[in-house]
């Protein structure tokens, strides 16, 4: 139960490490830039007075894509292979997945979201609520789709480079999707999933930060959030 009384002092708990916070904000910048430049590449409108703008914007789009790939790979590695530490957190995320099948957790969490209960439910085996866990799975699936299709689309522009190699590896996917034009559409649809996710994510964090008096919004900058005093089963 997060601290219900605003007048009482709170205990802070170091939740997000330096790398987690840095990679979060790098990803914010990358996703914003990739969406903006992606829309531009699909429908260029600047005049040619800025010499080679299409080339530069596409190059920086592809470069940002490589950074997103690197960060996503690190995060997926952390999810699956990090050794569990003494505290509940990174390293135990796979086992936290059973929250998806915990019906009591679903009921409590949805009651909290629909304002039917005041206290934030906490779980002894998971940092995430069931809906939150599901949302992050969708986020990473769409990141994987956007990255794989992006690699296929970048391959002809970097045919002698790494993208050329990955493009060869991903040829069966290109065939399954029916050629580059369709690959581009799936790239576009996955981007929309990311945009809608971002919108919901920002609101949910702000809401939970205020309603739950948990300071999670501040935590992504400072690393500290309010300690959940008594986790309940």
């Amino acid at each position: 139960m997060a601290n219900p009384n605003p007048q009482e002092p709170v205990r802070l708990h170091y939740t997000f490490g330096r790398f987690t916070r840095a990679s979060h904000w790098i990803r914010v910048v990358l996703i914003v830039w990739l969406s903006v430049s992606g829309f531009y590449i699909a429908n260029p409108f600047l005049t040619p007075d800025l010499r080679f703008d299409q080339l530069y914007i596409r190059s920086l789009h592809i470069a940002a894509g490589w950074f997103l790939l690197a960060i996503t790979l690190i995060r997926i590695y952390e999810f699956f292979f990090l050794k569990p530490g003494p505290k509940l957190g990174l390293g135990q995320e796979v086992s936290m997945g059973r929250i998806l099948f915990d019906w009591k957790a679903w009921r409590d969490q949805l009651a909290f979201y629909t304002l039917l209960r005041r206290d934030h439910p906490t779980y002894i085996y998971s940092n995430y609520g069931p809906l939150q866990y599901l949302a992050y799975i969708v986020l990473y699936l769409s990141l994987v789709v956007v990255i794989l299709t992006g690699l296929i689309l970048a391959a002809p522009y970097q045919s002698m480079g790494l993208a050329g190699w990955t493009g060869q590896l991903l040829k069966p996917l290109e065939v399954a999707l029916g050629g580059l034009a369709n690959v581009r559409i799936y790239h576009h649809i996955a981007m929309w999933v990311l945009i809608v996710f971002t919108l919901i994510h920002v609101y949910m964090v702000a809401w939970y930060s205020i309603r739950g008096r948990s300071m999670v919004m501040e935590a992504m900058i400072s690393g500290y959030k309010v300690d959940d005093a008594q986790p309940q089963k």
Binding site: P44, L46, T47, P48, L50, R51, F52, D53, Q54, L55
Partner: peptide
């Protein structure tokens, strides 16, 4: 042959 125009944003 018009690839240069594409990269230059000359459409």
């Amino acid at each position: 042959e018009r690839r240069g125009n594409f990269d230059a944003g000359e459409f």
